[in-house]
Simulated scan of single mutants.
Amino acid sequence: MKTKLHILYGGKSAEHQVSLQTALAVTKALDMDKYEVYPLYITDTGEWRRGGLLNGPAESVHQLKLEDGGETIAPLALSSGEDVAEASPVIFPLLHGPNGEDGTVQGMLELLNLPYVGNGVLASSAGMDKVIMKNLFAQAGLPQVGYVHFLRSEWEKAAEATYVKVEEDLGYPCFVKPANLGSSVGISKAKNREELANSFREAFEYDRKIIVEQGLDGAREIEIGVLGNDEPECSVVGEIAPKTEFYDYKAKYEDGDTAMIIPAEIDGETYAKVKEMAITAFKSIDGAGLVRADFFLTKEGELYINEVNTMPGFTPYSMFPLLWQHTDVSYPELIEKLVGYAKERHEEKQKIKHTF
């Protein structure tokens, strides 16, 4: 019997286009003999559109926008007993950024009691908010670079004081980031006061809260994939080697001018430490399904966790699937595993008593 699978993509987020590319890639990898695949598209204004059964891979991003034949629905219709919901579908959220990767959609799916791929409400929201995430990592004893954070209202009232705090606590260079966004959107590197002020202005365009992190000169950026539920496993380690000054949005998605070294050239002791820290990070946010954990490795061999991404880039050319490909898990197999973990976690939740 085929598994009914709804791929959920798009979203009211600055990462809307990234999500569409991910969804296109997933439709090309799914085994249509194993799955009944239905597209669910959230427009950039928040409208939900549902398409009919896919008979094969989507041919283009335009097709996935469901402008020809898509049906506008209320999200609650996913569990209303309509034809596509007669047997509970597994929802595969391929959403990046706020209003999708941050626990909002996951909370709705929990209320509808639908199985879904990936992290739950807590892990998604904590993984989206870089400040909360780093606070949890600190509680778990994971080494991190120095950081400070600010609300837009603080900056608007006393910009000079915020700049002084960065200079006194962190110094230059430093990285300024929106607290709740991914794909390197809104991130800047600041090497002096003028660049810091410009970086604050840009980051606050995307969020009401920003985080500023200490820069590490010459540190390598390495990443590892984590897969599973209660007993997570790790992939090989990969390294990001951007030819620009840092791995920004343009380097990730437009230039194609960044090297991914898989596996990374690290010794066995460092690899063991990366795996240990990645699993600790995964468990500290109560992860499920998947995360990509990102680290800094200094010239002196010191290892610092940077962040985890609870819905990492998921095209066949993204780091997360490539890490697993080099760990003998193909892209279609990876998708199948994630759907399996979603069912496993959903079945476990059904054992919880709601009366006494």
Rank of each mutant, 00 (worst) to 15 (best):
G100W: 06
G52P: 04
L142M: 12
H96M: 10
Y247W: 13
G118D: 11
V212D: 05
T72C: 00
P57G: 11
P312N: 03
F137I: 08
P316G: 07
Y41N: 11
T43W: 00
L111A: 12
N306Y: 03
L5E: 08
N135Y: 05
S80Q: 11
P178R: 01
E110M: 05
L151D: 11
G120L: 04
D286Q: 14
S88V: 03
K252C: 08
F150W: 12
E86C: 10
M260A: 11
A272E: 14
P98H: 10
F314W: 04
E302N: 15
D248M: 12
E59F: 00
T72V: 14
H149F: 15
P178K: 01
D44V: 12
S199V: 04
V61H: 00
I222W: 04
N229V: 10
E336P: 04
F356T: 06
M277G: 00
S19V: 05
R345D: 12
C174H: 01
P89D: 12
D129N: 15
F175Q: 03
L95I: 13
I132W: 13
E160Q: 15
K243N: 15
A23C: 10
V274H: 06
S284R: 05
Q350C: 02
E239S: 01
H6G: 10
K349F: 12
F175V: 01
L290A: 13
I262Y: 06
Q350V: 00
T327G: 03
